[in-house]
Design a protein around this nucleic acid. Structure first.
Lengths: 336, 336
DNA sequence: TCCTAGCACTTCTTTTTCTCAAGTGCTAAC
DNA sequence: GTTAGCACTTGAGAAAAAGAAGTGCTAGGA
């Protein structure tokens, strides 16, 4: 267990390092802690032994270690009220009755990316949460039509289909068949249902059914891959720890791999220690799976209409208090 | 006018610099040019005087100036046949009958970004080319519905609408009214038509017409902003000239500003000299409006169904021959 | 037992100096 | 017009020097 003074010290060091991005010296701290720099140094040495602080070289000041941030986040952080200015801007978005839920999310996370200079991510509705509501067909000319798929949560996907030897009527027949048979099915179960229940039937009705079938199949496949939205990626370039092209290249590549992004959604409950923070999870450094110097702060929101994950990604040295409180604020606003 | 040897020299220097990214020395060239390095040097001095070559410092080798690249592109380049391997990969895409035109474009430009390590951009259908085909409504539950707009070129946009005091029937009435009155109108004229022709009529039918009207209005507004697609942005990080975070930050920011991207589409016919290259335009360095070290190579494609702009963006020191021939190849494939 | 002043020591950072390699420009001769 | 030769310039890199910022440790005091 840490003494009160040690906690206070760690907190100060985290705070200072977040501000300055530089190692924190004993001299800087001793004024606030009301004791000599020598005392601070010996406390620092203790904290380093425990593993909460690190040095960049023998005679440097201290920076928080990954464990140090962990401790800070789990025990010391007190998410401050978000500033009046921040709240005002967000309220403008949430109070705008014109806006749809999904627009609210997008806009507020865009705003947060701007305000904080971090990167925000929205992972949309999981496809297993969406059920097929309706399939629609719009003929464009006598060779093309658009197939539009709508789910009960309001997601829409579409695809143009080109046909040569199939008549519009035949296609409409297929569509109405599908509408009859699989409306209400969760999106991610549709593939198999299509394959085993619909395909055999289509075969009976339509000669050139492969094309139609494939197109519809593809529309559904797109659902699962189209729900990641990353805002403010360029903000990463503003952080001093990412002033190295190779590092940036690596991070950007990771962020582009959708799989990695989805992993964010699932790497969870590894440790449930952080439950205290109203379901806001913090993945620090290595835990982020992106870069040792990055942190992901994420939460899930659940509304009657939909659910999803929102996350803020930034340097390990991020303003946890602010980020967590912003995320809490948004989450609670979304859920009401 | 340049002598034959000068042309050959410039061509060699451009070629070498593109390969190595370093200033080209007289020694390197003299073997190929079959004369002494002293001769090369004096020719180089002449070309520098004309403004086609530059030095990075007093005693460095030469690099092509912006004008030098210009001269090369306009007069010396001979787009070689694209390599068998490249062609094979592209043909797989173009021969895939399953793929829709727009998918072909996306996939082939994705491929080109991978092959060349440059960045590719697709500017979709200009909204003035699209006319309204049909508006569709799908009710989700008793408080929400989705409005889906389809154009005659096959573009689709949608928006969820939430309503409190409006009945589904009333909305359907409005939609069918719109379908009657403005189907066939170019998308970018719809706003004004909505404002002056439809709005007054809606007012008569529906009490809470503002919400419905605004939503529909927004759907159309989205059309104009949703047709830019950038692929392979991270490739910029691979080029040695962009190993500077500030430069990268600037470029990425520019690429994100949609306005700038649209400018690409319009900064044209400034000079019509390059007409020889089958309508492929090359904007070198400053001309690119992105960064002095970048070049944009772009072309427009026109098919019976749609038209758009495709562009390859990379360092000024890009492989013009290859890029231009790839672009020509894609353009001609798309148009058939 | 805890705190602190003082000082030796370490490491990074910055600046300076040196040297080397790679090129060029110029001149004189072919 | 071409070329060999040589002086000169510059950048890149290594090495040395000086300075700044901090730490760790020790010994004395509360």
């Amino acid at each position: 267990m840490l003494t009160e003074r040690q906690k206070k010290l760690l907190k100060l060091i985290v705070g200072e390092h977040i501000k300055s991005a530089k190692p924190v010296s004993s001299k800087l701290i001793c004024k606030t802690l009301k004791c000599s720099s020598a005392t601070v140094r010996s406390e620092m040495a203790t904290l380093e032994e425990i593993g909460l602080l690190e040095k960049t070289h023998t005679s440097s000041g201290r920076i928080p270690s990954e464990q140090g941030y962990r401790y800070y986040v789990d025990n010391l952080m007190n998410p401050k009220e978000i500033s009046g200015e921040d709240m005002l801007k967000l309220q403008i978005i949430f109070n705008n009755q014109q806006l749809q839920l999904s627009d609210c999310i997008t806009k507020s996370l865009q705003l947060i990316a701007d305000m904080t200079n971090y990167t925000t991510i929205v992972l949309g509705n999981a496809s297993h949460e969406n059920r097929l509501k309706e399939i629609n067909v719009v003929p464009i000319d006598n060779k093309q039509m658009i197939i539009i798929v709508v789910t009960d949560k309001g997601h829409v996907e579409h695809k143009t289909i080109e046909f040569e030897n199939v008549s519009l009527d035949e296609i409409k027949k297929i569509i109405s068949l599908i509408n009859e048979l699989i409306v209400g099915t969760p999106i991610d179960e549709i593939s198999s249902k299509l394959e085993y229940e619909i395909k055999p039937i289509i075969g009976r009705y339509v000669k050139e059914h492969e094309i139609v079938y494939n197109t519809i199949y593809n529309v559904f496949k797109d659902f699962s891959s189209k729900n990641v939205n990353i805002v403010g990626k360029n903000n990463i370039l503003k952080q001093p720890e990412f002033n190295n092209i190779d590092k940036v290249k690596n991070i950007f590549t990771k962020l582009d791999e959708e799989d990695i992004m989805k992993k964010i959604d699932y790497i969870e409950d590894i440790e449930d220690i952080e439950e205290n923070n109203k379901n806001i999870k913090v993945y620090i450094g290595k835990e982020s799976n992106i870069d040792d110097d990055m942190t992901i702060v994420k939460t899930k929101y659940h509304t009657s209409k939909e659910e999803g994950t929102i996350a803020i990604v930034g340097p390990k040295r991020m303003d946890y208090d602010r980020v967590v409180s912003l995320l809490e604020y948004i989450k609670s606003n979304l859920e009401n």
